[in-house]
């Protein structure tokens, strides 16, 4: 185990309806890294994200995040610890404005709790003003500033993806799980998303773990790559190491190299 791992998964097992979706997976994610999680369809990547974010419960095994065991913890508690996810199919809150989507994600808003709201409305308003400024800045970064007042449901598919990522960052996370951030997004926008991710890692030291099928992106943008197949981690290392690993080539069903299955 690396001394500077922000996330450590050991022997994770998850059964669904008699099927073993995750079968003894172990890996770690280094603090401040951009790590890709790849693997053929049905490898258990999305189930792994569900386990990490608390949306599914481990059968056995452990998950440690920033030194704490988070296996079996409720999703909102994990999110409050700084581990935030996005979903494969974007989940913007369509009936709320873009700005409200962002403000909802603000981490410590006393106005969200009835007692502190009633006893200290001024503190709630002050927190709201701070959050609004943060949200404006993030929306600016992601090119959504003009859309702040629109309903999120009125955004295009790519804009929704941006909003979901911006909203996840609004929680001031230390680890962000991105489930296929590029899916359904045009290549230009996709590159912009990746640039933002790289910049945020530089500025804030945020760690990113993302699932992606485009091998060019994985190989060019990730510091480390974790490969899953049939519920297990079969390889992990730098892009070059993983690319050279025969087990990885094997897993992608006899194809010459991972690139061709993108």
């Amino acid at each position: 185990m690396s001394a500077d791992a922000i996330l450590e998964v050991a022997d994770a097992v998850k059964d669904f309806d008699g099927l073993r979706a995750v079968d003894g997976a172990s890996f770690h994610v280094e603090r401040g890294s951009i790590t890709a999680l790849i693997g053929p369809n049905g490898a258990g990547k999305t189930t792994m994200f569900d386990l990490l974010s608390g949306f599914a419960r481990l059968n056995t095994g452990t998950i440690r995040f920033a030194g704490r065991s988070i296996g079996g913890m409720a999703p909102h508690r994990i999110a409050r610890l700084g581990l935030v996810r996005t979903f494969q199919l974007t989940r913007v809150l369509a009936g709320m404005s873009v700005m409200d989507n962002m403000l909802l994600a603000a981490p410590s808003q006393p106005g969200e709790h009835l007692p502190s709201l009633i006893l200290g409305p001024r503190r709630a308003r002050a927190a709201e003003a701070r959050s609004r400024a943060d949200a404006q800045a993030l929306l600016e970064t992601f090119g959504l500033r003009d859309k702040a007042r629109d309903y999120a449901g009125a955004l295009s598919g790519g804009q929704r993806k941006l909003l979901e990522i911006a909203r996840a960052l609004m929680t001031q996370p230390s680890l962000v799980l991105l489930d296929e951030p590029m899916a359904g997004v045009n290549p230009t926008l996709g590159r912009a998303i990746l640039d933002h991710i790289a910049a945020l890692r530089e500025q804030r030291g945020t760690t990113f773990l993302f699932v992606e099928h485009d091998m060019d992106v994985v190989m060019s943008r990730a510091d480390r790559v974790i490969v899953m197949a049939q519920g297990r981690v079969i390889s992990a290392g730098t892009p070059a190491q993983v690319r050279a690993d025969p087990a990885v080539v094997e897993a992608y069903l006899g194809s010459a190299s991972p690139e061709t299955t993108a």
Binding site: S53, F55, A74, P75, H76, A79, R80, V84, R85, T86, F87, R91, V92, L93, A94, G95, M96, D100, L103, L104, A105, P107, E112, R167, A168, T171
Partner: peptide
């Protein structure tokens, strides 16, 4: 606002803490 978030998508709202 949290209530409206739950109305729209409770999993996404939980994922925001």
């Amino acid at each position: 606002r949290v209530l409206r978030g739950i109305r729209e998508d409770e999993d996404a709202t939980a994922a925001l803490g």
